[in-house]
């Protein structure tokens, strides 16, 4: 077991974990933050995307011990976050989700796009979204939602 100290959604957390425990399983099974979803566990689908020190990472292929000393933000930790509030509303209005399984990871990735690439056009948004799989929507609603937030943030 390895001791682990980190901040999750602003809360200080200390835990003793098996080194093989993934960050995703840590936030889900140990912290019961079940909004972080596992879709492939090999880093392709993006459902498990969380922020580590403000940057999106794959929590399924990041061991919890590698998150020692970091600040993690899961989908449950964005209540006071303006870009996320805008994205949630835009996803709702643009029918950017169906089954909802990819949605938390998609939102975290989308937040990265609108904050890191404030001028992204449709092609760029689609390119950046290649790391997040959605089996339901065909991406049209997701792309439109992100573009609408980019536009609002430019105004």
């Amino acid at each position: 077991m390895t001791e682990l100290t980190l901040k999750i959604n602003g809360e200080d957390v200390t835990a003793d974990v098996e080194p093989r425990l993934s960050l995703a399983d840590f936030v889900r099974d140990h912290r019961r933050l079940t909004g972080t979803h596992l879709g492939c566990e090999h880093g392709v689908c993006g459902a498990c995307t969380v922020l580590m020190n403000g940057e999106p990472v794959r929590s399924c292929i990041t061991f919890a011990v590698a998150a020692d000393g970091t600040e993690i933000t899961t989908i449950e930790g964005f209540d006071d976050d303006d870009p996320m509030t805008m994205l949630r509303q835009a996803f709702h209005e643009n029918h950017a989700l169906q089954c909802g399984y990819c949605t938390p990871g998609m939102l975290v990735a989308a937040r990265d796009i609108v904050t890191r690439l404030p001028d992204a056009d449709e092609d760029r948004v689609r390119l950046e979204l290649a790391g997040n799989l959605c089996r339901c929507t065909g991406y049209v609603g997701i792309v439109n939602a992100i573009l609408s937030v980019i536009e609002k943030r430019q105004a």
Partner: peptide
């Protein structure tokens, strides 16, 4: 290379 969330690490 891969996706931004992978490139970050």
């Amino acid at each position: 290379i891969s996706y931004r969330s992978v490139r970050n690490r």
